[in-house]
C-alpha cells in the first residue's frame, strides 16, 4: 500500500495549481523513495517534472512502485476542499482505482476524506540528463512572474539573452517593443531578493511567452526561481519546494526555419 502525510497541505494544493493548466492528466509514480511525475503538455513542446522525496513527508510508506493516473482538474477540485492549514494524507491500496485524501484541520477538530478516481494512463518517460548549462540565473520568483506577465501583454515570444551585463528579456508586438534587463545583485540582506547570474558563456534563445507565463503559476511555491539556458536546448524553469523536492518546467526554444 501507499500512504503519505504532509502536515503543510497547502504545498500540495499549490503544486496542483501550478500544474493543472499545463497538463490535463498524468501518472504520479510512487515508490519507496517518494513521488514523481513527468508529463508533457498536449502539444509536447513543454514538459513538467516533479520530484517529492519520501523524507520530505511527515510520514511516507510505499510497499510497491505504482503509477497513479491523475486527472489534475479533478485532483484540484478535491484539494480545494482542504483548508490551507490542513494536514493532508494520501492513501491507496496496491493497484487501486482510487486515491483517498484525508484532510485534518490543525487543531484536529475537523476531519474529512475524499476519494479521487484514478485513471489508466499510457505514458512514456523521457530520460533527462543532468548537464551543465551555459547560463544559470536565480531570481525572485515574483520578479520572474512580473517579467513574463508584463511581456505577454506586448508580444508572443521573448528573446532571453544572458551576457556578462545581465539577463535581458526582449519582445515586440503590435503595440511596440519591450526590454527588461536584470543585473547580478546580491546587495539585499534577504537572500530571496538576490539575482544571481552564473554565466559560463553568453547564450540567447527565443521562447513562446504563454508557456513561460504558465510556469509562473508555481510562484507561490518558492521565493526564488532558477532559469537554466544552453544553446538549442530547452530552458529549465525550476522551483524548489522547500525540503520536499522540486518542480521543473522544460520548454523547447523557437527555431527559425
Amino acid at each position: 500500500m501507499f500512504e503519505a502525510k504532509i502536515s503543510q497541505g497547502s504545498v500540495l494544493k499549490k503544486l496542483v495549481e501550478a500544474l493543472k493548466e499545463l497538463v490535463t492528466e498524468g501518472n504520479i509514480d510512487v515508490s519507496p523513495s517518494g513521488m514523481s511525475l513527468q508529463a508533457m503538455d498536449s502539444s509536447h513542446v513543454c514538459l513538467v517534472s516533479l520530484v517529492l522525496r519520501d523524507d520530505g513527508f511527515d510520514h511516507f510508506r510505499c510497499d510497491r512502485n505504482m503509477p497513479m493516473g491523475i486527472h489534475f482538474a479533478n485532483f484540484s477540485k478535491i484539494l480545494k476542499c482542504a483548508g490551507n492549514d490542513d494536514a493532508i494524507t494520501l492513501k491507496a491500496e496496491d493497484n487501486a482505482d482510487q486515491l483517498t485524501l484525508m484532510f485534518e484541520s490543525s487543531n484536529q477538530d475537523r476531519i474529512s476524506d475524499f476519494d479521487l478516481k484514478l485513471m489508466s494512463i499510457e505514458s512514456e518517460h523521457l530520460g533527462i540528463p543532468d548537464q551543465d548549462y551555459s547560463a544559470e540565473i536565480k531570481m525572485p520568483a515574483s520578479e520572474y512572474q512580473r517579467i513574463v506577465r508584463d511581456l505577454t501583454s506586448i508580444g508572443d515570444t521573448v528573446l532571453i539573452s544572458a551576457t556578462k551585463e545581465g539577463i535581458k528579456f526582449s519582445t515586440s508586438g503590435d503595440v511596440g517593443t519591450a526590454n527588461v534587463t536584470l543585473r547580478h545583485n546580491t546587495t539585499s540582506e534577504k537572500q530571496e531578493e538576490h539575482t544571481i547570474i552564473d554565466l559560463k558563456e553568453p547564450v540567447a534563445l527565443t521562447f513562446a511567452l504563454r508557456y513561460l507565463k504558465n510556469f509562473s503559476n508555481a510562484t507561490a511555491l518558492a521565493p526564488q526561481v532558477k532559469l537554466s539556458l544552453t544553446k538549442d536546448l530547452p530552458i529549465v524553469v525550476e522551483y524548489q519546494v522547500g525540503e520536499l523536492g522540486n518542480i521543473r518546467f522544460y520548454l523547447a526554444p523557437k527555431i527559425d526555419d
Binding site: M40, H44, V45, H125, L126, G127, A252, P253, K254, I255
Partner: peptide, 14 residues
Amino acid sequence: AAGQKSMTSFFAKK
C-alpha cells in the same frame, strides 16, 4: 516563421 520541436526530439524515451 519560427517552429518548435517536440520534447521527444531533445530527450530520449526511456
